[in-house]
Amino acid sequence: MQDMAQAFGVALALAGSLDADLVEIVGLSLQVSITATLIACLFGFPLGAILATARFPGRGAVLVVVNALMGLPPVVVGLLVYLHLSRSGPLGFRGLLYTPTAMIIAQTILITPIVAALSRQVLEDLHHEYAEQFRSLSTPRWTAVNALLWDGRFALLTVALAGFGRAIAEVGAVMIVGGNIDHLTRVMTTAIALETSKGDLPLALALGMILLAIALAVNAAVMSLKLTAERHAYA
């Protein structure tokens, strides 16, 4: 118990001193996960909008698959991306394995189904409300989808946040395709795993605290944005 209190103190000092290694690790984590979230939204929002508004044969099957993919185990994603990017894999010639790009690819694959499935739910509720009015106004399909995405923007922000939360917290995929290489592909989660196994609890704890602080800060920001939106009845 005393060890933990001591570690906690050291961790606080470390986090407060903005240790260069620490800043580098946190920076890379944010860079990889924010990029992955943006790309996942680029694909996930339109996919969610199509699933929410279109009726086509096999839609039910697609929904089941997308919902099931929300629970993709990160290590499995990591393994699949590893197989594709490794020297003998189909994309091996690009030499992407053990780079931040590989980590972004893995996290994008991991969270795109989450973004698609959650935005489908959000947009389907909105579509249900708007559909008759859109039909009455002879709204072209593409205009309707754009209007849904715009009017659902605050709810979609929460969806993006859910994706980001999953990306920044996962360790399995980035460990496999990134390799946890110091100064190159080491992110917060892989560093925590490594430092814990080495017994360097203060650094692991400091990183854990920063991870929690980021989660809190992002959630608080989105919450305040949502409250503003609700005050203006835009959510």
Partner: peptide
């Protein structure tokens, strides 16, 4: 043609 519904459906704008 146009239609006004019992419960107005207004965009969030």
């Amino acid at each position: 043609q146009a239609m006004v519904f019992q419960r107005p459906v207004l965009l969030r704008r």
